[in-house]
């Protein structure tokens, strides 16, 4: 799993996987993968090999607080793909994409419609839930790439929004 890990002044791309033997492997950015030897030893308390300072950890959804020897760090740990979409990284704010695989339930706009930032534009069903996706900018719908009933791959482009004249 790839995570986008951000604090107010840092951002890291961290990938984490567990091999069949149960060993965790981590890689930061383009760096080499290395085994991670650490675990929770009590609620909120971690021990990590190679780190002598006490480590406190609390996970609340995407917010993860870590203290190292009293030094506090607050991170938002997001699924990297979702984070990229949210930040418009790679994709532009004018592209509405699905962060998960699913199926189109209905379209809420047509080509030529004027939309505003935050306006719901399409409904996608995934994991038996209907999810509304929103426009991330003010503009005009320039293209619709899908139709109701279409099955979607994660990351698929759904709607393109352009600047209004």
């Amino acid at each position: 799993m790839k995570y986008d890990v951000r604090s107010s002044d840092h951002q890291f791309a961290v990938s984490v996987r567990r091999d069949p033997a149960g060993v965790l492997w981590v890689a930061v950015g383009d760096g080499d993968e290395a085994p991670f030897h650490g675990k929770a030893i009590a609620t909120g308390e971690w021990r990590v090999v190679g780190e002598t300072r006490p480590i406190g950890v609390a996970v609340d959804g995407e917010t993860v607080d870590v203290t190292m020897g009293g030094d506090p760090f607050r991170f938002t740990v997001a699924d990297a793909r979702r984070a990229a979409l949210r930040a418009g990284g790679g994709a532009s704010a004018g592209e509405v994409r699905t962060p998960m695989p699913g199926a189109v339930v209905r379209l809420m706009v047509a080509v030529g419609d004027t939309v505003t930032d935050g306006q719901p534009v399409i409904v996608v069903e995934a994991m038996k839930m209907e999810n509304e996706f929103k426009a991330q900018m003010d503009g005009v719908v320039t293209a619709i790439h899908v139709a109701p009933g279409n099955t979607l791959e994660s990351g698929a482009l759904l709607i393109t929004i352009g600047e209004s004249e």
């Binding site: 799993m1 840092h10 984490v16 991670f36 929770a40 780190e51 996970v59 760090f73």
Partner: peptide
Amino acid sequence: PSDEDAEAAAVIAAVARFEKD
């Protein structure tokens, strides 16, 4: 803030989230 510490903390945060998932 030490960048090294921030990176180490970020790795722990990612692992914690991974284990939660």
